[in-house]
Write a protein that binds this DNA or RNA. Sequence first.
DNA 1: AATGAACGCAACCGCCATGTC
DNA 2: CGACATGGCGGTTGCGTTCAT
Length: 367
Amino acid sequence: MGKGRAPCCDKSQVKRGPWSPAEDLRLIAFIQKHGHENWRALPKQAGLLRCGKSCRLRWINYLRPDVKRGNFSEVEEDTIIKLHQTLGNKWSKIASHLPGRTDNEIKNVWNTHLKKKLACKDDGEHSEGDESKGSSSTSSSSSSSSTIMSSGKRALEMELDEQKNQGFSTQKPRILENEEDSSPRGVSNNQFKPAMKPNELSSSSFSSNNSSITNSSQADVSEPDGEKTGSFFNFRGRYNVRNSLEEVNKPEEIVTEIPFESDYDFWNMLDSLSSFQTSGIQLQNVEAGQSSRFGDAYNMGEVENKKWLRYLENELGLDATKDENQNLSKNAAESTIVPENFQHDMPLKPAEVHPGTVENFHLWPSL
DNA sequence: AATGAACGCAACCGCCATGTC
DNA sequence: CGACATGGCGGTTGCGTTCAT
């Protein structure tokens, strides 16, 4: 059709590929300040050389505060399987039943091992059963959903709705216990699992469309310690740190208390630059299930918060990822955050609050 | 130890649905 | 009502990591 659709952006003018920590920060900082009413305009306003869609995806799949990462629990897997039977490849719908999970993640999990798991199961149970075997036909299994009996479907949906309403609060969060189980190949990238308490998840109203704020990002914290003390972000391609919480290597009970630290180590790394190394852990011990965690409980001053973010921006813009950040800073000259008179020796953050925690982001005024 | 295959995940692409003018 | 803009979704791809040989 002549109408067609305008490209969402000028591909030649946007950066593609993995997001750098600097970009993440910039995106987070911008959304913190201004929200994301217009994804298309956002990159420009935020000084990002990215397509709006890319920003949106990055936010939804990674940077949102309510994104739960790490291996899927048995319950979650079962839920996905059930939902997939009824809904097919409606990943976003499935995701809406799984607090903190994104459609993309669910899709990946399905395509990577749930499908295989099901296939194996089927093979085992009725070695040559249903020809449909939707799970074995790569990424085209959506049609299988329509074959489900409607009565069963109805009941299942009700059941799932119930689960959804309960926010999975009775489930054990998927934590470290079944790591090997759900990541047969070790999954290097996925070894850092932030553990979120289910009740936290429910308390902050999850859904893949939800747009609260997050920390997270993935600084490459996997690098040797020595490198961590170098320049802020020695970004080298992917910096899949994701959720480095597991590095904390705590007993399970404790891990489950950790709120939202999807990139704990990232922030921890930042912290280490200014001798703040403990508050993050302290924060983990705070019972975070209460909704107040997004409110007054950690209500550091807004000014402090801004200072912290400004510091980050400044740091990044000045010496971190160099060219990229120079561009970013240039483009964002009027819209962002580089402070005029910011002192490098200022405290990175209020003592009680770990900068990487969502709490801080939830202080952002425009949200 | 080196190398290729397999795997897993983040990100991209393009279409569709919806909203606005 | 049509044209257009934007957000959202599902499918696919690229690439880093791990495993097997």
